[in-house]
Amino acid sequence: MTLNPEVYEIAFRSIYITFTATLIASVISIPLALYLAFHDFRGKTSIVNLIHTLYALPTVLIGLLVFLMLSRQGPLGFLGLLFTPAGMIIGQVILVIPILVGLTYSAVTSLDPIVKDTIISLGADYMQFLVSILREVRFVIYAAIAMAFGRAISEVGAAIIIGGNIKGFTRILTTAISLETSMGNIELSMALGIILLFIALIVNFVMTSIRRGD
């Protein structure tokens, strides 16, 4: 069952889409979290609260909003990204940004002020300061990335609305499980489910190893 090449293809597509989305989301979120942590402005508390609320952003809602954006009649329709892996990546990026920003922000703001003072007193310039801060909170960031990856790879609502579950193109593990179950192919669904679980375990293992080896 697991030797079926189509299963590999679907699993690889899942990993590819979620890795890409997690990577893009990390690149956006970590600077954003640092900005939030070290700048004060009106409405900041509301934004932070909003971000925490969006941890629970329903995936189907993201699916619907991204669908409306990317549909030919939507504002970004000219890009032709509806029913493509790129569209699904956009959905997952939106899905995990709150988690990455929120967790990084919390970690940075809860650092002991002495750490910050020490870094500054050692004569660090602004970039060196930020890099040192990130180094202090790296474990939390690893964990946040692993969590973001887990949430993105396991979601099905947005993937099916944005991707359309096209065989050989936008079908990923979760949408395939959903389809195969509805078609009564329980064994195949189980096999796909085990692969999904396995991927989650590997990601967790890699992140734990990084932490240990550090």
Partner: peptide, 20 residues
Amino acid sequence: DVKKTFIVLLVLFSAIFICG
């Protein structure tokens, strides 16, 4: 070493992303 692995992985993912 693990750190290096991490960086290599990161570069690899970036490469995949750029191909994508």
